[in-house]
Design a protein around this nucleic acid. Structure first.
Length: 805
RNA sequence: GCGGGCGUGGCGGAAUGGUAGACGCGUGGGACUUAGGAUCCCAUGGGGACACCCGUGAGAGUUCGAAUCUCUCCGCCCGCACCA
């Protein structure tokens, strides 16, 4: 053993040895106790591995290493999510083809991930940009297409007037184009959708049984946003055969509906508009179409115009005016609302601004029937509502729905905030959507045996500004023959959303390289669903929801036995630096290479884990890392100095410390409290350093406990301790509950809740004995009033509380 | 606005009804040393008339006992955001 701790050479040495011996590869077919340890594969940016990646992967890797030492056959794969707009935009900026760029980035990432010391099964790595991968992404699309889950229809999409191109939702940053900062507008275009809303109820209801971080489940529930209510039909005053359907969660307030509001895009707008209102309505509709999303959504100020048309409230029989306003969204519900200004804040604002009547139809607490000065949105008791009068809100809702259904003027209805998944992108850098358009046969899926539809290797991948993918400009790609009739046909030129690539990558890992199937049924049955998935909160809704949907659909199509892909998901926190979020613009981004170089990967790993509870995140301080570096140095020298000292015996205290530490570290790792696990090891080390000669069992225990955190150092120590390779395949140490019991304990004595003395007493004393000891203490006696009647509360081996009042 | 999380020394953080501040950083002192920004040891919440008092964002409550539970308020962070 070297006299100084030299992380660089130790880490290089073991990384090489691990690779040569393949300790992190698993025999997927024959593994006895499979454990699939997943983390979110990175997007390989040109900047290299971000410290946020290092944080995420280290925490997940520690979990995997711990499970492996617990005897599990841990499969911990890694891959690269390299399609998508980030790569494409960067490539455009640099004028380098994304393919070239990505290859370099991937190589750099692989090298950094290796330096990090993850226990990755590299033989199963996947890259989403590899035709052997995206062939199967296209295959999934085809399955969905055949099942009717993938459909092409018109939809409003984000449009950047300056770049003259369609933008993905992810490219719109608070209403502005990511690249040129121009305000984004809406355009109606033909797009491909996955009908995720059909799965809304299952996606929502399954959450109850998933072992996932509560934050993520809550975010998904809100995103799906199920709301129950009714659809009610308001006939037009001029022509009762036509009706305006509205969705409401408060059918009980229908007697207070004093006007209707339609979204400007609503198809009945033209019909309702009278000749004298036409100019104004047209102008408003046009303006709304051109307004940016931010303008439309962000502003609190409500605008709208009267159409001149009237509809009939089917409950009261009264005519109500119909307005259009852009605070009503065309994409939600029916695109029309019944406005109840008395009991909805937005309708109240609108009614106040345009002088519309505000009625009170729900009495407030204490039978409050006074005139409203603000919308009363709480539940109450129905009033001025004909048959519903006197009913509390929940019952009134039910009564209203029943009555609507009886009279056939409406019915119970459920709506979701969740929208269908728009998956087509008018871009170059993604898997081409595998369909062709034939004049005779219509939209035809590419036959599976013809997959992949290769992304053509072109020089010019810059969007043309026509609203079409750059692929549309390549005749050799576009022009093809119909697989059905062999007549001339045109290929789809859109590519699929990057989120589709990442919605199934974990299904591919075990079956990577399989040329015949996307995922092998036997391997899939053996390894999935995933045992542990750890990742960031930022993917709470998009990735994690799309992934669940894809699995559910594949399950229904008969390809999977399970519908939920991840048994357990844990969201880790964010790592900040000196209290501030890391960002390029602040110039405070931690570059892991610098720290690998200066301290080694083990120090960086352990330090990141030490900064705070893993699920809450931590604060990276440039000075703080020294503490962990010192700790690893001390461990190194402790082992080195004690190697030659044989036969040291552990004192009872030391033995207890050892077992206590094993317990604390074990429990903390399981709870992802890596910071306190390290603190426990530091205390252990402090205890060991007080010994003249440290028993070999303690050196071994400390090395094993530290192994998941500092895999290289501990491998070196394990070898020095003359133990068989590899420390990472050695069983996790166990503790003996009997040894944990201390012989003497500190019992705290309180008088009237204040701490007055601490007594060193033999463990297991009964209350009477503890009382006697406590009353014998001067420090306690001083606070006991003469002749007071005393009451005692005794917590064995911990505390005696004396009450004098 | 809605939803979620958080507020503890100079700093990161421990303690989820029972010894507040574990562990680490920083700081002060000491040892070793030609020297050290290396290493080791000691101290380190505030006050003090030093056998004591105060102290976990503020205020109230429950309890023998509250950082922890309850209510009200203040502040910060993260989602979603005119979703009817």
């Amino acid at each position: 053993m070297n006299t100084t701790y030299d992380p660089k050479s130790i880490e290089r040495k073991w990384q090489q040895r691990w690779q040569e011996t393949g300790v992190y590869e698993v025999d997927l077919e024959h593994a006895k106790d499979p454990y699939y340890n997943l983390m979110m594969f990175p997007y390989p940016s040109a900047e290299g591995l971000h410290v946020g990646n290092v944080y995420a992967f280290t925490g997940a890797d520690i979990h995997g290493r711990y499970q492996a030492m617990r005897g599990k056959n841990v499969f911990e794969p890694m891959g690269f999510d390299a399609f998508g707009i980030h790569s494409e935009n960067f490539a455009i900026k640099r004028g380098i083809h994304p393919k070239t760029l990505i290859a370099g980035n991937v190589a750099h990432f692989r090298e950094q991930l290796t330096r990090l010391g993850g226990r990755f099964a590299w033989s199963h790595a996947v890259e989403t940009t590899d035709p052997d991968y995206y062939r199967w992404t296209q295959w999934i699309f085809l399955q969905f297409f055949r099942a009717g889950l993938a459909q092409r229809r018109k939809a409003p999409v984000n449009w950047c007037p300056s770049c003259k191109t369609v933008l993905a939702n992810e490219q719109v940053i608070s209403g502005h184009c990511e690249r040129c900062d121009t305000e984004v507008t809406q355009r109606e275009l033909e797009q491909w959708f996955f009908d995720i809303t059909r799965y809304a109820d299952r996606l929502l209801d399954n959450l109850d049984d998933l072992d996932w971080s509560e934050v993520i489940k809550t975010a998904q529930r809100n995103w799906i946003g199920r709301s129950d209510g009714a659809q009610l039909r308001f006939p037009l005053a001029r022509d009762a055969t036509k009706t305006i359907s509205v969705f409401t969660t408060r059918p009980d307030t229908v007697y207070g509906a004093t006007f209707l509001v339609l979204a400007p895009e609503h198809p009945l707008v033209a019909e309702l508009t009278t000749a004298e209102r036409k100019a104004e309505v047209d102008a408003y509709v046009r303006a709304a179409a051109e307004r940016s999303q931010e303008d439309r959504m962000g502003g609190q100020d409500k605008t709208g115009v009267f159409t001149g048309g009237y509809a009939v409230n089917p409950f009261t029989g009264k005519e109500v005016p119909v307005y259009i306003a852009d605070y009503v969204l065309y994409g939600y519900g029916t695109g029309a609302i019944m406005a109840v200004p008395g009991h909805d804040a937005r309708d109240f604002d609108f009614a106040t601004k345009y002088g519309l009547p505000i009625l009170r139809v729900v009495a407030g607490p204490g039978d409050d029937r006074t005139t409203l000065t603000a919308a009363y949105t709480e539940p109450g008791v129905a009033m001025a509502s004909g048959p519903f009068d006197g009913l509390p809100t929940p019952e009134a809702k039910e009564a209203a729905i029943r009555l609507a259904e009886e009279r056939q003027i409406g019915e119970r209805h459920r709506t979701y905030h969740l929208r269908n998944w728009l998956i087509s992108r008018q871009r170059y850098w993604g898997p081409p959507i595998p369909v062709v358009y034939c004049e005779k046969c219509g939209i035809v899926g590419v036959p599976e045996e013809d997959l992949p539809v290769l992304l053509p290797d072109v020089q010019d991948f810059v969007p043309k500004g026509t609203g079409e993918s750059p692929l549309a400009a390549i005749p050799s790609f576009v022009e093809t023959t119909c697989p059905n009739c062999h007549g001339p046909a045109r290929r789809e030129t859109d590519v699929s959303d990057n989120f589709l690539d990442s919605a199934w990558y974990f299904l591919r890992y075990p079956s990577s390289g399989d040329a015949r199937k996307a995922f092998d049924p036997d391997l899939t049955r053996k390894w999935l669903p995933v045992d542990s998935y750890i990742g960031g909160k930022e993917h709470a809704v998009l990735h994690l929801l799309y992934t669940r949907f894809v699995c559910m659909a594949l399950h229904d199509l008969g390809y999977l036995d399970f519908e939920e892909p991840f048994k357990r998901f844990r969201a880790h926190g964010m790592i900040v630096r000196n209290g501030a979020k890391m960002s390029k613009s602040r110039g405070n981004v931690v570059n892991p290479d610098e720290f690998f170089e200066r301290y080694g990967a083990d120090t960086l790993r352990a330090y990141l884990m030490f900064t705070g509870p893993y699920e809450e995140g931590g604060d990276f301080s440039d000075q703080g890392i020294e503490g962990i570096y010192r700790f690893l140095n001390r461990v190194y020298h402790l082992v080195r100095k004690n190697l030659g000292l044989s036969g040291a015996e552990a004192s009872p205290d030391l033995l207890r410390l050892r077992h206590q530490t094993i317990r604390r570290v074990t429990e903390d790792i399981e709870a992802l409290k890596y910071n306190t696990a390290l603190a426990a090891m530091m205390e252990y080390l402090n205890g060991l350093q007080r010994e003249n000669a440290v028993p070999r069992d303690d050196l071994k225990a400390l090395t094993l406990l530290l192994a998941p955190f500092a895999p290289h150092l501990t491998e070196e120590l394990w070898q020095a301790l003359d133990q068989p390779y590899s420390v990472h395949q050695t069983p996790w140490p166990t503790f003996d509950a009997d040894v944990l019991v201390a012989k003497t304990v500190t019992v705290v004595v309180q008088v009237d809740g204040k701490l007055r003395d601490r007594l060193q007493l033999p463990a297991g004393l009964d209350e009477a004995a503890v009382r006697e000891a406590a009353l014998g203490s001067d420090a306690v006696q001083r606070f006991l009033p003469e002749g007071a009647a005393l009451r005692f509360v005794h917590v064995p081996d911990r505390l005696l509380s004396i009450v004098t009042r």
